[in-house]
Design a protein around this nucleic acid. Structure first.
Length: 419
DNA sequence: TCTGGGGTCCTAGGACCC
DNA sequence: TCTGGGGTCCTAGGACCC
């Protein structure tokens, strides 16, 4: 059996842990730049605030209904996630952390265990240890565990937030309940295709002919179909080093000058280089893109990206920044209002593999320098040491007007308890 | 004025090989 | 009039996820 554990309204719940006065009250969490809603508490959902709601359009509702608004605080969410995962890992040696707020557990040899009880215990332990509420779905395959989890989340009272699919009858009932567009792995496009041939729920999808699915959809959907039939097809996946690393941001205002973009691109490249060093990779190729403000229909639009092959594997911030700025210079055009840019590194090699490049090599002095910078930044805070193409005066990165304290990762932000 | 960010996998088609 | 067959590798774009 597989269990899928999913934190309820994770970002909103993280905020609430340290603000118990907000229990039962509507909370929303905004994206970077306080742009749109990316998480909602149940109370906020009930007010009809949709996912992705544009913040400024909902300002009035936030005020009228006393919605508590938070800027995204990913340092807090990342740390809370680790705490949740650590508790969950006690329940099985085989765990896949699927996302910041979800994990699959493989339950082999649990035949004589009362899974309902175990799920409820899991929940108590996570709530006691972190304050985060979770839902648990248990079933013979990953895709079915996803379905079970959805039922647990939808009917918390009836299921005590734990739902188990352990019989053919339960499987069919669950699949008939699940709309085709809500199946894990079926997105908008494929849902449309399926609806056009009168497939309305997950059960009807699971009963489709294998050939038809393989031919008209793809092997991805075919695997999913088998998994939903109860034939274990998707297994736990081991954590792999990343194959791409991206750092992209919208700007708080429109940029028009090359200099401004150079500073941003340089900073993005530095962050990519840090992430590369963290997983001990070098990149051999890099992409830079710039996009004008596509929401301003009244302004001329321009967007372009460029991929450049690097002459040797790179994970030095200085070198990556240099190449990224070079790439930018090839695509920048004056006269446009730029709103977003990014750096994506790809085509990785292990940093320890010595290269066969004879003519060009990374500057050997950079590795110890980068190690020193990483150490200093780890001790004294992110971006304490910058390179000169970054804006050394810039301390803020974006609009974050409602940022909560970093309760768990910053000594000065730890809460005080008055006894 | 104001609209997020970071990933993975698969497929089709082109270039190239014998 | 008539123009093979079978591969591999790479990439861009599309689909999906959170």
């Amino acid at each position: 059996m597989f269990a899928l554990i999913d934190c309820n309204n994770f970002y909103a719940s993280c905020q609430r842990v340290f603000r118990p006065d907000l229990n039962g009250k509507p909370i929303v969490v905004l994206s970077n730049n306080d742009g749109c809603v990316i998480a909602r508490s149940n109370e906020a959902k009930e007010l009809g605030i949709p996912m992705g709601a544009i913040a400024h359009q909902f300002e009035k509702i936030f005020e009228e209904k006393n919605v508590h608004v938070f800027s995204a605080n990913f340092a807090l969410y990342g740390d809370m996630s680790q705490r949740v995962m650590e508790i969950l890992s006690e329940y099985s040696p085989e765990m896949e952390i699927y996302s910041i707020d979800e994990a699959f557990l493989k339950l082999d040899g649990y035949e004589n265990i009362d899974l309902q009880k175990m799920g409820e215990e899991m929940q108590k332990k996570v709530t006691k240890g972190t304050g985060i509420p979770i839902s648990v779905g248990i079933a013979p395959t990953k895709a079915l565990a996803k379905v079970a989890n959805r039922i647990a989340k939808k009917y918390p009272q009836k299921t005590k937030s734990v739902y188990i699919i352990d019989s053919e009858k339960a499987r069919i009932k669950a699949l008939k309940w699940l709309k085709v567009e809500d199946i894990w792995g079926i997105g908008r496009q494929i849902a449309k295709k399926l609806q056009s041939i009168e497939i309305k729920n997950a059960y009807e999808f699971s009963e489709l002919n294998d050939n038809w699915v393989g031919k008209n959809l793809s092997v991805v959907e075919l695997r999913l179909k088998h998994d939903l039939q109860g034939i274990p097809t998707l297994d736990l996946e081991e954590a792999q080093p990343k194959k791409n690393i991206a750092t992209t941001r919208s700007f708080e205002t429109n940029y028009t000058e090359l200099k401004q973009l150079e500073e941003r691109i340089s900073t993005f490249a530095v962050i990519c280089a840090e992430k590369l060093r963290k997983q001990k990779s070098c990149c051999n190729s890099l992409m830079v893109f710039i996009i004008s403000n596509r929401f301003r229909k009244d302004l001329p639009q321009y967007s372009r990206n460029i991929v450049i092959k690097l002459p040797y594997p790179v994970n030095s911030s200085i070198e990556l920044s240099k190449f990224a700025i070079l790439a930018l210079s090839k695509i920048f055009k004056p006269g446009y209002f730029y709103k977003k840019a990014g750096v994506i590194v790809q085509d990785f090699t292990d940093e320890n593999i010595s290269q066969l490049t004879i003519f060009e090599k990374s500057d050997e002095r950079h590795a110890p320098l980068m190690a020193a910078i990483d150490k200093i930044n780890a001790t004294f805070g992110q971006q304490k040491i910058k390179i000169a193409t970054q804006d050394t005066k810039r301390v803020w990165k974006m609009k974050q007007e409602k940022l909560s304290p970093n309760y768990t990762t910053k000594l000065s932000d730890i809460i005080t308890i008055n006894l």
